[in-house]
Design a protein around this nucleic acid. Structure first.
Lengths: 347, 347
DNA sequence: TTGTAAGCGTTATCAG
DNA sequence: CTGATAACGCTTACAA
């Protein structure tokens, strides 16, 4: 019923023998075939096909010191992380780009502090050629690890220890223009004649939240009072913050939420308080999270960021680094991607 | 500023020399140290620590033919897949379990049909020891590939080509008790005196959708008319199906939706039609998707499945298979996990 | 252009 | 219990 020894696959040696050439020549053909007479190359290719040869990855890695794999490190200090569509979509973008470069994606989830030992061992163990890491808090141990073992890395989101988009210190990262996007959102509210614009910020130890708060302040600069509460990027947190804000100032006529999830929470509280949206209070979110912004009631006006595109970009940047050798790499630098205000019914 | 040659890490050879033993002995210590005099073992361990030795994975794999990695294959024929919290949570469970077994997770996303070539090459290339695969349609090429190259695999969700939980054909899979859960949901509606209970099914070529429909029918057996429309597991699809159902029978007084996302779509349409929930129409979802069921308005009564637990289970089952050798493995079998009705405000 | 041969870092076999 | 030594499958100088 089953084949005799399906276990051991043909080696390069077998291919060479089958084609009547040396293993070296066979190897050359497998790796592009430059400088091999087409006659022989064809014979080798035929042998490969007939034997169903597939290169042994471990053997290749052993000598080339290249694994053809990249680690994607995702922390989930809070529960929310992986169920947040944000990561899913970014990972999707990354996966697509890596696939295009014939590179594998090794997923490393970080649950708690102790996991970093494991991560370091893994990274140092040479299992991967580079790493992609996300949303680092200012005190995250990962940057130190990465620096220590000298691993090429691209970060997603401005790391907490950098000052801002302009001043960075030697890291490459991809981030949306959170500040600019927030500015645009608030200006949109101002343009509608809203006077008391509140902001529900995300956790301010995350730079995306801090940058959006900065944008909010930028737009309000013209002598307007600022009024904000800190949420946690969840609907419940948004609801809590909204209640607090309403308590502090019942006259609020607009809210800019740091993300769509918090906006839905705010929406619920606004409705429960008897206010209409956008009639009494206009509401703008951030992310344009699918299955959230669009299906909210009313659908959310929000600031869209191209999350999948950011993921792709991260991967591309990393591949670029990997493909030039440590010598003449382009200097590490942040890449800021544009945001876009999507107007729906809520503001 | 930087170390001279941070590039080349110490080898086992170096450790052996440092400890004054043979490479073979050093290797034994690295792999548990059975049958090595404690005296020597300690010396080796010290050397390992002092040199910062980390085993070279490729070299090890080359000889042991074990990679210490597992592939997680996720198809996304429709757009929704990865932004669906379902996969995220299942992956999370898998990741946790694999980590506990010191095994790496290689993520393989399948975009389109052509990707299967790449997947097959990858699997056959011996990059991983086993695979975890999801939600296969009846005509999915993956099972054939997996059988052809004889790779240990555990499926998530009942594969489309199996008949049901009882009759399976040689595959191990983990699935929630979709049918039982659906039955419970509908019985709950019946117990409330609802008479016209409609069902919004997911795409019926997915077994989870088909099984939930079966459960719906089971519960209705007592001579009740069945009334269902097929959605696509998205809010928009749920809305579409709801509109269609209302059109066909305006007297519907309850709806069992195949998942929470479709339930939110249905909710919107019900509200827009002037109906109250649960006053005029009771609504039950499926999944208990966080940030969806709970934050819906009203919060959704739904059937919870322990998604993360299912992920962990899948990984554990695979590891079990991997650790016993092809000889005496326990026969492939489905594992069905329990569901639980979570009562909230919508029904 | 092609072949020979020397590794790459481990584990595993087999004497001692 | 320990140590040579032979694989593992491939790439890459170096020679021819």
């Amino acid at each position: 019923m089953t084949e005799p020894r399906p276990d051991s696959r043909p080696t390069l040696e077998a291919v060479a023998a089958h084609a009547g050439v040396s293993r070296a020549t066979a190897s050359r053909v497998v790796n592009g075939g430059d400088g091999v007479r087409t006659h022989l190359a064809d014979r080798v290719r035929t042998a490969i096909r007939e034997l169903g040869y597939i290169p042994n990855h471990a053997a290749r890695t052993l000598v080339t010191r290249r694994t053809g794999a990249v680690a994607v490190i995702i922390p989930e200090p809070e529960i929310r992380i992986f169920s947040d569509p944000f990561f899913s979509r970014q990972v999707r973008g990354i996966a697509k780009e890596l696939t295009a470069h014939d590179t594998q994606l090794v997923l490393l989830l970080v649950e708690d502090r102790g996991d970093y030992d494991r991560i370091e061992r893994y990274l140092a163990g040479g299992h991967v050629d580079g790493a992609l890491a996300f949303s680092l808090h200012a005190d995250d141990p990962l940057p130190a690890i990465i620096r220590r073992i000298g691993m090429s890395t691209v970060f997603g989101g401005r790391p907490g220890w950098t000052i801002g988009p302009a001043e960075h210190d030697g890291v490459t990262y991809v981030d949306a223009d959170n500040r600019g996007g927030a500015r645009e959102a608030v200006r949109h509210l101002l343009a509608q004649g809203r006077r008391r614009i509140a902001h529900i910020a995300g956790p301010l130890d995350q730079t995306s939240a801090a940058d959006r708060l900065s944008g909010y302040r930028d737009a309000l600069a013209a002598g307007r009072p600022e009024l904000f509460a800190e949420g946690d990027f969840t609907p419940a947190g948004g609801a809590r913050a909204m209640a607090e804000l309403l308590d502090r100032d019942p006259g609020i006529d607009a809210v800019f939420a740091g993300n769509d999830l918090m906006a839905t929470g705010a929406l619920r509280v606004l409705r429960e308080s008897g206010r209409t949206v956008p009639g009494d209070v206009a509401l703008v979110g951030f992310d344009d999270a699918e299955a959230v912004a669009e299906s909210a009631d009313p659908p959310l006006t929000t600031v869209r960021q191209d999350i999948e595109g950011m993921g792709r970009l991260m991967a591309r940047l990393l591949m670029d680094t990997l493909n030039v050798g440590p010598d003449e790499r382009t200097a590490p630098r942040p890449v800021i991607t544009a945001t876009e205000l999507v107007r729906r019914a809520s503001a």
